[in-house]
């Protein structure tokens, strides 16, 4: 690989890392798993002046339960999610999506938080988190003024910010993270009676999704849907939360017809491009089909069937 020249820093504490970020700001790219960043540097699509490797920072790799949330920290790998007993017990959509991430080799190094911070519209985790109404936690050095170059004059004085996933994911390859901030965790609310599922059409293992559909539903005591999450991968300029389809489900008794309607709404909401993975017409069809299939699967899990 022949990247452009870069500085490589590998601090051993979070404080040091935040200091580097505060000092060097937007010339820095953070290296967690590097499974998107390194290939981009190799092709010179990314030419960061400084690579800040956070892998030596202890205490950043937990997957656990905290304050009613399931928490996945910055250095938790996709493979950790696949293996996690907490995830398996707590969140069906994450458990279902994790084995679909890239290939086993990428999963061994790539991280959930890195994938979110990268915000490739073809990434699977952003759809999962949109369907789950996740939040991310970002930290920056306290006591100095941080500027956001994208948003006019936005600034803050450092510390910890909790950002809803919808506010976090701004546009393709763009988040609301400040250049001086480090994304330390993503967390999703726990639920009582629910189920989730991820459907992905890919040409081979390791391929980006031709179409990806994440669904999550929660059921009340009356068996009606109390909460629904639907988000799409690779069929819009960014990962797309289909709020209209979610709204159509909430308060309803689940049925094939209802899920077909959600599929139609999702199919109408997406705006896929024709490319080597497939035609726009086909992708739109698959969005509808997979939304329907995914919701049926989520329901089965929510009703106590096996995931």
């Amino acid at each position: 690989m022949y990247p452009s020249k870069f500085d490589y820093l590998a601090p051993e504490t979070l404080e040091e890392a935040l200091a580097v970020l505060a000092e060097r700001g937007d010339e820095v790219k953070i290296l967690a798993g590097g499974q998107s960043l390194i290939p981009m540097m190799k092709l010179r699509f990314a030419e960061p002046a400084t690579l800040l490797d956070i892998n030596r920072i202890p205490g950043l790799d937990a997957i656990d339960i905290q304050n009613g949330h399931v928490r996945v920290q910055a250095l938790a790998r996709h493979a950790d999610v696949v293996r996690s007993a907490v995830i398996k017990e707590e969140n069906d959509l994450m458990a279902g999506a994790a084995p679909w991430i890239a290939d086993p080799i990428v999963r061994n190094l790539g991280t959930v938080c890195g994938s979110l911070a990268h915000h490739d519209p073809e990434g699977d985790w952003a759809s999962v988190m949109l369907a789950l109404d996740a939040e991310v936690v970002a930290v920056s050095k306290e006591g100095v003024t941080h500027f956001h170059p994208g948003a006019d004059g936005t600034q803050h004085t450092g510390g910890t910010r909790v950002i809803s996933i919808q506010d976090f994911l701004v546009d393709m390859f763009t988040t609301s993270l400040y250049p001086t901030e480090l994304l330390t965790e993503v967390r999703v609310p726990r639920y009582e009676r629910g189920g989730g599922n991820y459907q992905k059409l890919e040409r081979k293992v390791g391929d980006y999704a031709t179409v990806g559909v994440a669904t999550h539903i929660e059921l009340g005591d009356d068996d009606r849907i109390t909460k629904a999450g639907i988000a799409l991968t690779s069929v819009y300029a960014h990962n797309l939360k289909v709020t209209d389809a979610e709204t159509a489900l909430v308060g309803q008794a689940p049925s094939d017809e209802l899920f077909a309607e959600a599929g139609r709404i999702a199919s109408a909401a997406c705006d896929p491009a024709s490319d080597t993975r497939g035609s726009a017409e086909y992708k739109r069809h698959i969005v509808g089909l997979f939304t329907e299939r995914s919701l049926a699967e989520s329901l089965k899990i929510a009703q106590g069937g096996q995931s």
Partner: peptide, 8 residues
């Protein structure tokens, strides 16, 4: 033979 082509 992509899934797209088979579907079409």
């Amino acid at each position: 033979m992509s899934a797209d082509r088979v579907w079409h």
